[in-house]
Amino acid sequence: MTVAAEHFRYVQQLVMERSAIVLTEDKSYLVDARLAPLARAIGVADVNGVVDHARSRRDPALEQRIVEALTTNETSWFRDTRPFHALEHLVLPALIERKRASRVLRVWSAACSTGQELYSLAILLEEKFPQLRRGWQVELVGTDLNTEMVRRATEGLYSNLEVNRGMPANLLVRYFEKEGAHWRARETVRDRSRFVKLNLVGKWPPMPTFDVVLLRNVLIYFDTKVKTEVLCRVVKQMARGGYMLLGTAETPSGLCPDLVPMPTDGTVVYHLPVG
Protein backbone atom coordinates (compact mmCIF):
# COMPACT_ATOMS: atom_id res chain seq x y z
CA MET A 1 0.00 0.00 0.00
CA THR A 2 1.36 3.40 -0.94
CA VAL A 3 0.19 6.52 0.79
CA ALA A 4 -1.81 8.78 -1.54
CA ALA A 5 -0.07 12.01 -2.52
CA GLU A 6 -2.69 14.17 -0.81
CA HIS A 7 -2.38 12.13 2.39
CA PHE A 8 1.39 12.33 2.27
CA ARG A 9 1.16 16.14 2.13
CA TYR A 10 -1.14 16.11 5.14
CA VAL A 11 1.31 13.93 7.12
CA GLN A 12 4.20 16.09 5.93
CA GLN A 13 2.45 19.23 7.20
CA LEU A 14 1.44 17.62 10.48
CA VAL A 15 4.95 16.37 11.25
CA MET A 16 6.40 19.76 10.27
CA GLU A 17 4.01 21.65 12.57
CA ARG A 18 4.48 19.37 15.55
CA SER A 19 8.16 18.54 15.38
CA ALA A 20 9.72 20.81 12.73
CA ILE A 21 10.98 17.68 11.02
CA VAL A 22 11.00 17.96 7.25
CA LEU A 23 9.69 14.88 5.46
CA THR A 24 10.95 15.24 1.91
CA GLU A 25 8.97 13.82 -1.03
CA ASP A 26 11.20 10.74 -1.18
CA LYS A 27 10.06 9.69 2.31
CA SER A 28 6.65 8.28 1.34
CA TYR A 29 8.09 4.80 1.94
CA LEU A 30 8.72 5.88 5.54
CA VAL A 31 5.09 6.95 5.93
CA ASP A 32 3.98 3.56 4.54
CA ALA A 33 6.29 1.61 6.84
CA ARG A 34 5.71 3.60 10.02
CA LEU A 35 1.94 4.00 9.78
CA ALA A 36 1.16 0.38 8.84
CA PRO A 37 1.35 -0.82 12.49
CA LEU A 38 -0.85 2.13 13.50
CA ALA A 39 -3.44 1.06 10.90
CA ARG A 40 -3.55 -2.39 12.50
CA ALA A 41 -3.71 -0.89 15.97
CA ILE A 42 -6.74 1.31 15.24
CA GLY A 43 -8.45 -1.27 13.01
CA VAL A 44 -8.45 0.45 9.65
CA ALA A 45 -7.51 -1.22 6.38
CA ASP A 46 -4.29 0.60 5.55
CA VAL A 47 -2.12 3.69 5.82
CA ASN A 48 -4.56 5.86 3.87
CA GLY A 49 -7.24 4.76 6.32
CA VAL A 50 -5.16 6.13 9.20
CA VAL A 51 -4.87 9.52 7.56
CA ASP A 52 -8.58 9.56 6.58
CA HIS A 53 -9.44 8.78 10.17
CA ALA A 54 -7.26 11.54 11.58
CA ARG A 55 -8.48 14.14 9.08
CA SER A 56 -12.19 13.38 9.20
CA ARG A 57 -12.43 13.19 12.98
CA ARG A 58 -9.86 15.88 13.79
CA ASP A 59 -8.53 13.43 16.36
CA PRO A 60 -5.61 15.08 18.23
CA ALA A 61 -4.58 11.83 19.93
CA LEU A 62 -4.33 10.04 16.60
CA GLU A 63 -2.46 12.98 15.09
CA GLN A 64 0.02 12.75 17.92
CA ARG A 65 0.46 9.01 17.29
CA ILE A 66 1.13 9.72 13.61
CA VAL A 67 3.80 12.27 14.51
CA GLU A 68 5.35 9.89 17.01
CA ALA A 69 5.38 7.00 14.53
CA LEU A 70 7.30 9.14 12.06
CA THR A 71 9.82 10.65 14.43
CA THR A 72 11.05 7.52 16.12
CA ASN A 73 14.37 6.21 14.96
CA GLU A 74 16.33 3.01 14.97
CA THR A 75 18.87 3.07 17.72
CA SER A 76 21.53 0.83 19.13
CA TRP A 77 23.83 0.53 22.13
CA PHE A 78 27.11 2.46 22.06
CA ARG A 79 26.02 3.78 18.67
CA ASP A 80 28.86 4.78 16.34
CA THR A 81 31.56 3.88 18.91
CA ARG A 82 33.75 6.94 18.47
CA PRO A 83 31.60 9.37 20.49
CA PHE A 84 31.75 6.93 23.40
CA HIS A 85 35.50 6.65 22.97
CA ALA A 86 35.71 10.46 23.09
CA LEU A 87 33.50 10.54 26.20
CA GLU A 88 35.68 7.96 27.93
CA HIS A 89 39.07 9.36 27.01
CA LEU A 90 38.54 13.12 26.64
CA VAL A 91 35.23 14.54 27.86
CA LEU A 92 34.61 12.72 31.13
CA PRO A 93 38.21 12.81 32.43
CA ALA A 94 38.32 16.58 31.74
CA LEU A 95 34.98 17.19 33.45
CA ILE A 96 35.82 15.01 36.46
CA GLU A 97 39.04 16.96 36.93
CA ARG A 98 37.39 20.36 36.46
CA LYS A 99 34.40 19.60 38.67
CA ARG A 100 36.23 17.85 41.47
CA ALA A 101 35.16 20.61 43.89
CA SER A 102 31.42 20.72 43.10
CA ARG A 103 31.21 16.98 42.31
CA VAL A 104 28.11 17.44 40.18
CA LEU A 105 27.87 16.00 36.67
CA ARG A 106 24.83 16.37 34.44
CA VAL A 107 24.32 14.76 31.05
CA TRP A 108 21.45 15.31 28.63
CA SER A 109 20.55 12.91 25.83
CA ALA A 110 18.37 15.28 23.82
CA ALA A 111 16.55 12.80 21.56
CA CYS A 112 16.82 9.69 23.62
CA SER A 113 14.38 7.40 21.78
CA THR A 114 14.07 4.19 23.85
CA GLY A 115 16.99 5.08 26.11
CA GLN A 116 19.88 3.09 24.63
CA GLU A 117 22.17 6.12 24.36
CA LEU A 118 21.69 7.26 27.94
CA TYR A 119 21.90 3.75 29.39
CA SER A 120 25.03 3.10 27.31
CA LEU A 121 26.52 6.15 28.97
CA ALA A 122 25.37 4.94 32.40
CA ILE A 123 27.17 1.63 31.72
CA LEU A 124 30.28 3.49 30.55
CA LEU A 125 30.28 5.43 33.84
CA GLU A 126 29.94 2.21 35.86
CA GLU A 127 32.69 0.46 33.92
CA LYS A 128 35.24 3.23 33.58
CA PHE A 129 34.49 5.84 36.24
CA PRO A 130 33.50 3.94 39.39
CA GLN A 131 34.84 6.85 41.48
CA LEU A 132 31.67 8.76 40.52
CA ARG A 133 29.74 6.44 42.85
CA ARG A 134 31.57 8.01 45.80
CA GLY A 135 30.33 11.45 46.72
CA TRP A 136 29.32 12.62 43.25
CA GLN A 137 25.89 13.73 42.18
CA VAL A 138 25.42 12.33 38.67
CA GLU A 139 22.22 13.13 36.79
CA LEU A 140 21.50 11.55 33.43
CA VAL A 141 18.48 13.02 31.68
CA GLY A 142 16.94 11.68 28.48
CA THR A 143 14.27 13.60 26.59
CA ASP A 144 12.18 12.73 23.58
CA LEU A 145 9.10 14.24 21.97
CA ASN A 146 7.48 10.82 21.76
CA THR A 147 5.47 9.83 24.85
CA GLU A 148 5.80 6.13 24.10
CA MET A 149 9.58 6.41 23.76
CA VAL A 150 9.81 8.16 27.13
CA ARG A 151 7.68 5.43 28.72
CA ARG A 152 9.77 2.67 27.18
CA ALA A 153 13.06 4.31 28.13
CA THR A 154 11.89 4.71 31.72
CA GLU A 155 10.83 1.08 31.78
CA GLY A 156 14.27 -0.04 30.58
CA LEU A 157 12.94 -3.25 29.07
CA TYR A 158 14.39 -4.51 25.79
CA SER A 159 13.72 -7.40 23.41
CA ASN A 160 16.34 -9.90 22.25
CA LEU A 161 16.45 -8.06 18.92
CA GLU A 162 17.16 -4.78 20.69
CA VAL A 163 19.93 -6.12 22.92
CA ASN A 164 21.51 -7.80 19.90
CA ARG A 165 22.14 -4.36 18.42
CA GLY A 166 25.52 -3.33 19.73
CA MET A 167 25.39 -4.49 23.35
CA PRO A 168 28.50 -6.53 24.16
CA ALA A 169 27.49 -9.86 25.71
CA ASN A 170 29.65 -9.44 28.80
CA LEU A 171 27.94 -6.12 29.58
CA LEU A 172 24.50 -7.52 28.81
CA VAL A 173 24.80 -10.25 31.44
CA ARG A 174 26.28 -7.80 33.95
CA TYR A 175 23.91 -4.85 33.57
CA PHE A 176 20.64 -6.49 32.53
CA GLU A 177 18.38 -9.13 33.96
CA LYS A 178 16.24 -11.47 31.89
CA GLU A 179 12.51 -11.01 32.45
CA GLY A 180 10.56 -13.49 30.37
CA ALA A 181 11.42 -12.78 26.75
CA HIS A 182 12.93 -9.38 27.59
CA TRP A 183 15.96 -7.87 29.31
CA ARG A 184 15.53 -5.28 32.06
CA ALA A 185 18.29 -2.75 32.75
CA ARG A 186 19.43 -3.27 36.33
CA GLU A 187 19.01 -0.66 39.04
CA THR A 188 22.69 0.35 38.79
CA VAL A 189 22.02 1.48 35.20
CA ARG A 190 18.65 3.06 35.86
CA ASP A 191 19.05 4.76 39.22
CA ARG A 192 20.79 7.89 37.91
CA SER A 193 18.75 8.12 34.70
CA ARG A 194 15.41 9.82 34.20
CA PHE A 195 13.39 10.43 31.10
CA VAL A 196 11.13 13.37 30.32
CA LYS A 197 8.95 14.30 27.37
CA LEU A 198 10.38 17.31 25.58
CA ASN A 199 9.87 18.66 22.08
CA LEU A 200 13.04 20.44 21.00
CA VAL A 201 10.97 22.92 18.99
CA GLY A 202 8.28 23.34 21.64
CA LYS A 203 8.11 24.66 25.20
CA TRP A 204 10.72 23.14 27.51
CA PRO A 205 10.17 22.16 31.13
CA PRO A 206 12.55 23.78 33.65
CA MET A 207 15.91 22.05 33.45
CA PRO A 208 19.35 22.56 34.99
CA THR A 209 22.38 23.29 32.83
CA PHE A 210 24.25 20.27 31.51
CA ASP A 211 27.94 19.42 31.35
CA VAL A 212 27.46 17.06 28.43
CA VAL A 213 24.76 17.23 25.75
CA LEU A 214 24.27 14.38 23.31
CA LEU A 215 22.39 15.87 20.37
CA ARG A 216 23.13 13.14 17.90
CA ASN A 217 21.30 12.59 14.63
CA VAL A 218 18.64 15.15 15.51
CA LEU A 219 19.61 18.29 13.61
CA ILE A 220 19.67 16.46 10.27
CA TYR A 221 15.86 16.39 10.33
CA PHE A 222 15.49 20.18 10.58
CA ASP A 223 15.83 22.90 7.99
CA THR A 224 18.60 25.48 8.52
CA LYS A 225 16.43 28.01 10.35
CA VAL A 226 15.06 25.50 12.86
CA LYS A 227 18.47 23.83 13.14
CA THR A 228 20.01 27.16 14.19
CA GLU A 229 17.22 27.90 16.68
CA VAL A 230 17.38 24.47 18.28
CA LEU A 231 21.16 24.45 18.46
CA CYS A 232 21.37 27.91 20.04
CA ARG A 233 18.69 27.00 22.55
CA VAL A 234 20.49 23.79 23.49
CA VAL A 235 23.77 25.67 23.86
CA LYS A 236 22.07 28.04 26.33
CA GLN A 237 21.18 24.95 28.34
CA MET A 238 24.85 23.93 28.54
CA ALA A 239 27.10 24.71 31.48
CA ARG A 240 30.16 26.79 30.65
CA GLY A 241 33.03 24.38 30.08
CA GLY A 242 30.57 21.77 28.84
CA TYR A 243 30.71 19.53 25.80
CA MET A 244 28.33 18.65 22.99
CA LEU A 245 28.37 15.60 20.75
CA LEU A 246 26.57 15.61 17.42
CA GLY A 247 25.90 12.87 14.86
CA THR A 248 28.63 11.87 12.44
CA ALA A 249 27.14 13.85 9.56
CA GLU A 250 26.24 16.93 11.63
CA THR A 251 28.13 20.14 12.34
CA PRO A 252 27.25 23.39 14.12
CA SER A 253 29.62 25.24 11.79
CA GLY A 254 28.08 28.55 10.78
CA LEU A 255 25.12 28.00 13.11
CA CYS A 256 26.55 28.60 16.56
CA PRO A 257 29.87 30.44 16.93
CA ASP A 258 30.11 29.73 20.69
CA LEU A 259 31.04 26.07 20.18
CA VAL A 260 34.70 25.24 19.65
CA PRO A 261 35.33 22.06 17.64
CA MET A 262 37.83 19.63 19.15
CA PRO A 263 38.71 16.92 16.61
CA THR A 264 39.59 13.73 18.41
CA ASP A 265 40.21 10.19 17.22
CA GLY A 266 37.83 10.07 14.27
CA THR A 267 35.10 12.28 15.69
CA VAL A 268 34.57 15.90 16.71
CA VAL A 269 33.57 17.02 20.18
CA TYR A 270 32.24 20.58 20.59
CA HIS A 271 33.35 22.55 23.63
CA LEU A 272 31.71 25.57 25.19
CA PRO A 273 34.64 27.48 26.69
CA VAL A 274 34.49 28.60 30.32
CA GLY A 275 35.16 32.27 29.64
Binding site: S76, F78, P168
Partner: peptide, 30 residues
Protein backbone atom coordinates in the same frame (compact mmCIF):
# COMPACT_ATOMS: atom_id res chain seq x y z
CA UNK B 1 20.40 -14.34 19.91
CA UNK B 2 18.36 -15.74 16.99
CA UNK B 3 16.46 -14.28 15.26
CA UNK B 4 18.81 -11.40 14.54
CA UNK B 5 19.14 -8.75 11.87
CA UNK B 6 22.14 -8.56 9.61
CA UNK B 7 23.40 -5.33 11.16
CA UNK B 8 23.56 -6.97 14.59
CA UNK B 9 25.94 -9.67 13.38
CA UNK B 10 28.03 -7.08 11.55
CA UNK B 11 28.22 -5.07 14.81
CA UNK B 12 29.26 -8.16 16.79
CA UNK B 13 32.00 -8.92 14.25
CA UNK B 14 33.15 -5.29 14.41
CA UNK B 15 33.38 -5.54 18.20
CA UNK B 16 35.89 -8.32 17.66
CA UNK B 17 37.82 -6.31 15.10
CA UNK B 18 36.41 -7.97 11.99
CA UNK B 19 34.90 -5.49 9.60
CA UNK B 20 34.89 -4.35 6.01
CA UNK B 21 37.67 -1.74 5.51
CA UNK B 22 35.17 1.11 4.97
CA UNK B 23 32.87 0.24 7.89
CA UNK B 24 32.59 2.14 11.18
CA UNK B 25 34.14 0.64 14.27
CA UNK B 26 32.25 -1.44 16.84
CA UNK B 27 31.00 -0.42 20.26
CA UNK B 28 33.45 1.35 22.52
CA UNK B 29 33.49 -1.08 25.39
CA UNK B 30 33.37 -4.13 23.17
Amino acid sequence: IKPFDEGSLIQKLAMLGFQAPSAATGPALA
